[in-house]
Amino acid sequence: MMGTFWFLLIIGIRPILSLTEADLKRSLLSSAVYDPSVRPRINASHAVHVQLDVQVVYIIGLTERDSSFAQACNIFVSWRDEYLTWNTSDYGDLDSFVVQPSVVWTPDVSVYGRMEINQRIELGQVRVNSDGMVNTKFLGILATHCAMDSEFFPFDYQLCTFIIGSEIYFTSEVAMEIKSLRQLESCKNNPNWNLVHVRKNPKPPFWQVQYCFQRRSLYLAVLYMVPTFMHAVLILISYIVPSEAGEKISFGVSLFLSFMVFLLQLNGDLPEMSTAVPALEIFFMLHMTSGVVSLVVSAISAYITHNNSQQTVSVNKVKDVSTAATNEKRRFPNVRQRFRDTSFLNRAGFVVSLSLILAANFIMFNAKLKSSGCTQ
């Protein structure tokens, strides 16, 4: 008899245990007692306080051409639902259950500035606790608009901002607050950008999240700046080549063509915007201009040398040295003769090319100094 009693007792308990959560959901979420479209406040004048915990997982990158910023992040959302409370002892000490977000009321957490039509983020499954606290989260990729400033490229800092708030409710109805803002160690693994800091800034009725990025410039410096320095040295050396040598012009043309190859490569990395000219582009164009000056001087010098060789040398009477020196002191130098002198042209071209190269280096040094952080 005792064995039959315990057998029947166990058989009777199992259906009770399996139906406890189902009974709880039916009693709380029945359409007769709960409306998911109504704010979960017994007193309608009270606001629903929604707390957000933003966790930055990984920085995918910034795209200058689209002015966009993509990140993998977690947004944990919690609030209190006054209609979803129960006594745990009445339901076998069940203190929480999980339902779909469409079954209960959820706040419309919207991220303004998303690169999508729908600004509202899709929340995952909802966990309801016995005290009425409801928790859910957003896990995924968040792509938002970011106004890029390329003035100090490639030593630039970028400040990307997006706003979190509610599209439907007023602050008197739903009050959102970013409780915490964290960044994981994986954020530092981006090869092109270094996340300097993430800050929250309340802008009632919204919250503003600011990301400060520093570009890792090692790749661009090695790819463009170092070869450009080498080209600058070759441009200055080209002035040493005698004007009579026909290879001087071909040497300058080869340098100019190599600049064009770098320009095509640079076009794929430079941001396409007209608000500011990147410092790297100015640096590159000044070096390219110095090469053009070298090529023009070489062509003019070759032309002058060729014409001088075609002219016949006429024998003039020997002038008195003292008289010639006196006349030379009295008159100004002949500018035309100066420009017909190839050595003078080479010296002038060398000074102009060197000045352009120094100006280009000064611009990059100035960009490195001025780009010291994010500005609003």
Rank of each mutant, 00 (worst) to 15 (best):
I42E: 08
I42V: 04
N43M: 06
N43I: 08
N43C: 02
A44F: 05
H46W: 05
V48W: 05
V48R: 07
H49R: 11
V50Y: 00
V50M: 02
Q51F: 01
L52V: 00
L52S: 01
D53C: 02
Q55S: 04
V57Y: 01
Y58W: 11
I60E: 14
G61T: 09
L62A: 11
L62V: 15
L62Q: 12
L62C: 09
E64H: 12
E64F: 07
D66Y: 09
S67I: 00
A70C: 06
Q71D: 09
Q71N: 13
Q71P: 06
A72M: 12
A72I: 12
C73S: 10
F76A: 12
F76E: 10
V77A: 04
S78M: 02
W79H: 04
R80K: 13
D81A: 05
D81I: 05
D81P: 10
W86R: 13
N87I: 10
D90H: 13
Y91D: 06
G92D: 15
D93Q: 14
D95A: 12
D95G: 12
D95L: 10
F97D: 02
F97R: 09
V99S: 03
V99H: 05
S102E: 14
V103M: 03
V103H: 05
V104Q: 09
T106Q: 14
T106V: 15
T106H: 11
T106S: 10
D108C: 09
V109C: 02
V109F: 00
S110D: 14
Y112M: 13
G113V: 13
E116W: 12
I117H: 08
I117S: 11
I121S: 04
E122M: 10
L123P: 09
L123W: 03
L123T: 06
G124R: 07
G124T: 08
Q125H: 15
Q125V: 14
V126H: 02
V126W: 03
V126P: 00
R127I: 08
V128K: 13
S130V: 08
D131H: 01
D131V: 01
D131R: 06
G132W: 01
N135T: 11
K137M: 08
G140A: 00
G140E: 03
L142Y: 00
A143K: 11
H145Y: 10
H145W: 06
A147V: 15
M148C: 01
M148I: 07
